[in-house]
Design a protein around this nucleic acid. Structure first.
Lengths: 136, 136
DNA sequence: ATCCTACGATGGACAGAGTCTTAGTCAAGA
DNA sequence: TCTTGACTAAGACTCTGTCCATCGTAGGAT
């Protein structure tokens, strides 16, 4: 899955050492880092990288549609590089671990017209909660 | 639906003027106020009520299971007094309006065992997004 | 290869949301 | 009524995120 960097290059995104390091740090499966975690890991490779740059870079990746923003706990947002395979999230209520999951069925179809209040509904986001094997 | 206060009294919850005002302000249908909004409204009736008290009180109502915490936008958490009728939320992507909705089906059943990663899954929270009539 | 310049990076101030601490107050049982 | 443990006020503090002015540099033009 090490292709976030390639996807970004392929879009003609201006490359800098900071942007490269952020993309490298964020790449992978089941990766859901907070901005501060990204900053900490990026700073191991490029110590002078600033927080603002990490926020800017993450924000652009989200705008480009190459990274998804996830907020499962009302605290810091998390960033998920797995943007091209639709999925939902399974969160451990105790330790906060997050896994990408792929439920069957389509939740959008489960919302009857009378329950839509005239909205144009375009998306359904599902968060499953429970205890992970280590916390159970 | 004016029964949040009754439910709390019925649990032997120690009653104070601050707690009563918070409960009164939060009661109703399709109510999803932020802590600051609750504080502002409570302060109209009880001007010296402090932010910390509002946070404490809301936190206790959530612990008691009489109020639900909702975070739909990664910004301030919202508080929903409709805790005894399971429901999901429909959010306007433009103005942030929230409605309580009741989808058919059970999203928990849509998560196959192989997608559970050994978790004990207990809950599925669905957020529908779209545009409300005024914003469309 | 070197120069330009628009775009990106930096660091610090600022803002919003929420928590914690400490001293003082009060609801409710004896 | 008295007592006391639980509750509240006020503000400092933390965490997350944004904004701004200034400096630096990637990459096209020459």
């Amino acid at each position: 899955m090490s292709d976030l960097l390639e996807r970004l290059r392929g879009r003609g995104w201006r490359m800098t050492s900071q942007r490269r390091v952020v993309a490298e740090v964020l790449d992978g499966d089941h990766v859901h880092l907070t901005a501060d975690e990204v900053h900490a890991r990026a700073a191991q490779r490029l110590p002078e990288i600033s927080r603002a740059t990490v926020y800017n870079t993450l924000g652009e990746m989200v705008s480009l549609g190459e990274v998804i923003e996830v907020s499962t706990d009302g605290r810091a947002k998390r960033y998920d590089p797995n943007a091209h395979h639709p999925h939902q999230h399974l969160v451990c209520s105790s330790c906060g671990t997050i896994r990408d999951v792929h439920p069957t069925g389509n939740p959008l179809a489960d919302l009857p017209a009378v329950e839509r209040f005239g909205f144009t509904v375009s998306e359904a986001e599902v968060t499953y909660r429970g205890l992970c094997p280590s916390c159970a």
